[in-house]
Each structure stands twice: as structure tokens, then as C-alpha cells.
């Protein structure tokens, strides 16, 4: 898991970017670490794929953490975390509704804001505001290095500092 995880500090949050296969394992680890308050799950259309952003708070010491993972358009499947935090149930449904992200293991994954008959996932960038296809829209190539690739190993003289910073959990 560590090999496919990028960890950074953004403002006051720890941000983990992980491979979709490791997403569930990381969430379980965070749940074990006491992150109990789910703030939101956001789906973002990155142009090359769909990003799931899970934001958590630990009520005990108010530590904040963000978990990101990217999935391709043709197979937007992410494991659901509703059993860990029931409060994300509607957020996962909303992400499914708006972006077509499918959360595996969700107890009741169906549209929440739009009607069931709709075939449109309106927040995808391939649709414009009115829900019409954007002419000439093409998905971007998958980024290289991948989003969860850890940053390249630092210069030897700075290695010590980086290690200290990277130990935060």
C-alpha cells in the first residue's frame, strides 16, 4: 500500500492519495486510528478519470484528513465505506448520481437528487451546464506519473528532514 500512496500536508489537513485497490484498506486504517466524523465524499471529474475525495475529522483532537483516489471513466468502481462511517451514505449516492461513480458494497445505491429515469450524470465535464454533450470533448490521457506515485526521493542532504515530515499519521 505504501508504494502506491502519496502523502502530503495541505493547509491543515493530511492528504493521502491512494490507488483504488488500497482505498478501502486505508479507510479501515483511518477508522482504526479514530477518525470518526465523516465530513463529505466528493466526486470530481479530473478530465482523465473520476476522483473520489473522502474527508474525515477526528473528534478527539480535531485532526483532519483527506483521502483521494482516482478511477478511470470506463470502470468507475470504488469500494464503499458506509459500513465504517454511515454518514457517507447519501454522499456516495450523490456522487453516483452526479458522476456515475459506483460504490461497491453500498446498501442502497440509487439516484438521490435526480429521478431514477435519468440517464445523465450531469457533473461530468463531457456535459455542459444544460446537460448537452460538449462538442469535441475528449478525455485526457491518464497522468504519468500516476496521482498516487510518491514524490521522487529527495536529495541526500535533505533526506533527514523529509523523513521526519513524512512520519505524520
Amino acid at each position: 500500500m505504501e508504494a502506491r500512496m502519496k502523502q502530503e500536508r495541505l493547509y491543515d489537513e493530511d492528504v493521502y492519495t491512494v490507488h483504488p485497490e488500497d482505498y478501502r484498506a486505508l479507510c479501515e486504517r483511518l477508522a482504526g486510528e479514530g477518525y470518526d466524523f465523516p465530513r463529505a465524499i466528493s466526486g470530481i471529474d479530473m478530465g482523465y478519470g473520476l476522483r473520489v475525495t473522502l474527508q474525515l475529522t477526528r473528534m478527539k483532537d480535531l485532526a483532519k484528513v483527506t483521502v483521494r483516489t482516482d478511477v478511470p471513466y470506463d470502470n468507475p468502481v470504488v469500494p464503499s465505506v458506509t459500513d465504517l462511517w454511515p454518514g457517507v451514505e447519501w454522499y456516495e449516492r450523490e456522487a453516483y448520481d452526479m458522476l456515475g461513480l459506483r460504490f461497491e458494497g453500498h446498501p442502497d445505491l440509487r439516484r438521490i437528487l435526480l429521478e431514477d429515469e435519468w440517464a445523465l450524470h450531469p457533473l461530468l465535464k463531457r456535459y455542459d451546464t444544460g446537460g448537452y454533450p460538449v462538442p469535441g470533448w475528449e478525455p485526457k490521457p491518464w497522468p504519468d506519473p500516476e496521482p498516487w506515485a510518491p514524490p521522487p526521493p529527495p536529495e541526500p542532504e535533505e533526506a533527514g528532514e523529509a523523513d521526519e515530515g513524512g512520519e505524520a499519521s
Binding site: E115, E117, A119, L120, G131, Y132, P133
Partner: peptide
Amino acid sequence: PGKDGRLPVL
């Protein structure tokens, strides 16, 4: 059903 590819809404 909607103009040019807009999907039916009902």
C-alpha cells in the same frame, strides 16, 4: 426527449 442527444428527463 431533448434536442441533440440530451437524454430524456422523465
